[in-house]
Simulated scan of single mutants.
Amino acid sequence: MVRPSSPPSFRLKAVLVLVAVVAFVVSPIWSPSFKGYDPTQFPNPVDAPAIQPAGWAFSIWSLIYLWLVAHALWGLLRHNDDAGWDRTRLPLLLSTGLGASWLVVATSMPWLATLQIWLMWALALWAMMRARDAGQPALCAGPIGLYTGWLTAASAVGTGVVLIGYNIGSEITVTLLMLCVVAAISLAIVLLARPPRTFAIAVIWALIGVIAANWGDGVVMLPASIFALALAAVAWRDLLPKAQAVGR
């Protein structure tokens, strides 16, 4: 049986996704060094805002980058005619395309970078929702879920840093507010949308980073820990009956 050729639009979008993802991955090369917003960019400079995870937590970007490249390559080479995969391409293309310029924007206009990362998140969420039924979750929904989960936390963190930097609320108030935003959004998505578990893993990783950065400060550690445990319980709730059955 001869396999039907893929629509030209499918192939074109698959190529464009690969180009956008690669541009996103290599963007640190042509962008200024970025290790968080420079405190001097704000009227109220804070060296280490409480909402910001420990530096090592950002290493998750290496996995996100590699997995997105694998997704784009596999999608082009093996799924360029797959309608399920194609449904994820437009939002992922737009999200990673915006991501390719995010570092440049962040080093000069933090408030605009905040708006940009929320738009990246919304587009990534759209792609993740479309990826749930695409097949081969390890290479389709998995990487998009990890990317979306991290953007969920990163968007709130970036917003918190900007609010603190512009004196719109105290550091603790803004930190607790943004932790609640992360918890509310991620729990709602997990409960209502049943995303890939990589989504929850990324959010929990970010919360662990916040806990580590605020070690010893119960005001931040306690809610961050509760939110991380709650998200884990909800994301893996379907395993509980199986575990109980094995125990019997």
Rank of each mutant, 00 (worst) to 15 (best):
G99W: 09
P39H: 07
L139R: 15
A193K: 15
Q52K: 14
V203T: 10
R132Q: 14
A184R: 11
P137A: 14
L94T: 04
D217L: 11
R3Y: 00
P45W: 10
Y37E: 03
V104W: 15
L146S: 10
G216F: 01
L90W: 08
L179F: 00
E171N: 00
A138D: 09
Q41I: 04
L98F: 06
W215Q: 12
V220P: 00
G158E: 08
I204T: 10
A141M: 06
L73Y: 08
L92N: 10
L73F: 09
G247C: 01
I144K: 11
D133N: 15
W56S: 13
F227T: 07
D81A: 15
L16S: 04
F24K: 05
H71Q: 15
W150S: 09
L94H: 09
T107V: 02
A193N: 04
A188L: 13
R197Q: 12
G218S: 11
T88A: 07
L222S: 12
V161G: 03
T152M: 11
L187R: 09
F24P: 05
L163K: 06
A14M: 02
P45I: 05
L239E: 10
L77P: 00
A48H: 14
L207M: 12
P195F: 06
L18E: 06
Q52S: 08
S101Y: 13
I208P: 00
D238T: 07
A202R: 15
W150F: 11
L16P: 00
G75C: 02
T148K: 14
R194T: 08
T114I: 03
